[in-house]
Design a protein around this nucleic acid. Structure first.
Lengths: 153, 153
DNA sequence: CCTTGACCTTACCATGATGGGAAGCACTAT
DNA sequence: ATAGTGCTTCCCATCATGGTAAGGTCAAGG
């Protein structure tokens, strides 16, 4: 099977298949005499495993661990479960951070009449600065930086 | 005021201040005779505006628009509000996607006894593949790819 | 006056996962 | 034989941020 066919069958782009091979997430694919990569059903299954794991938000690093457990017939399901619950925890943390942003934004947006006039509590709040002092003067809900947000994973 | 002091006063790292200048998000800072950047209270206020916007998850691109509206005394508050509600929409979409992942993961984790035995429905599900066919055989809740997730912003 | 330490400057590299494109070779169907 | 599609490798871009290195500057104290 060609890389293109494997891509179609697994839902992983050819580009990413080559990338996964280059970072050794998957073993080096076999080659035809002319240098084309060749994939078997087993390898496509592994690619689907990866694809599904990515769909659940796992990082490549975590997928490496998942694959290792998958291959290991003497694994302990507790180890797999821990990976899953860690993933849940991380996602939930992210959701909470974003929810805090949403709450703040909605609060601000609700206060903005949103018409032709220039007065805007949203800009007023952003411009005010929200000092890190003891008594914040503006709505101070979202504490997470966008940087911190994307930091996870 | 030095870049270090401006960083402390605004909550934006010196590194990022230079970066924001290089991409023209903020105007070119003045310099002392020896080449040190100099910042006034006005510029620090702009940096705080940026910092706060980032805290609310706005991309640099969106912050550019926010800053333009901030400076424009003839702005229409509707334009600001639209930026805010768009941001809310984007965040909510992301939250929904992550919530779907969480739901799927929790479902799987709940089914995993998590002990010393190797049997694990989590790996079984990942390995099974969840074909894109009409009748998915495994739990199929999370439809968003991690790629799509981070694609926003 | 000289040293020390803290701070500034620029320039380059790295991150994580992915896409895009170019140049060149291989395969398939007409 | 030729056209078209698909494969190969290699390089670049993303986005916002941090790290590091080599070198210049400033302020305080001996």
């Amino acid at each position: 099977m060609n890389i293109g066919e494997a891509a179609k069958a697994s839902g992983v782009s050819a580009k990413m298949i080559r990338y996964y091979e280059s970072i050794h997430l998957i073993p080096t694919a076999g080659r035809t005499g002319s240098g084309y990569r060749v994939y078997s059903a087993t390898e496509v299954q592994m690619l689907r495993f990866i694809r599904r794991s990515r769909d659940l938000g796992f990082s490549v690093e975590k997928i490496e661990e998942l694959l290792a457990l998958w291959r290991d017939r003497t694994r302990q399901s507790a180890d797999v479960k821990r990976l899953a619950t860690d993933q849940i925890d991380g996602l939930e943390r992210k959701v909470r951070e974003m929810q805090a942003m949403i709450d703040t934004l909605r609060h601000l947006a609700d206060a903005c009449c949103g018409d032709h006039r220039p007065d805007c509590p949203i800009l007023a709040d952003l411009g005010q600065g929200t000092e890190p002092g003891p008594v914040g003067k503006s709505i101070q809900t979202a504490k997470a930086t966008a940087a911190q947000l994307s930091a996870f994973r």
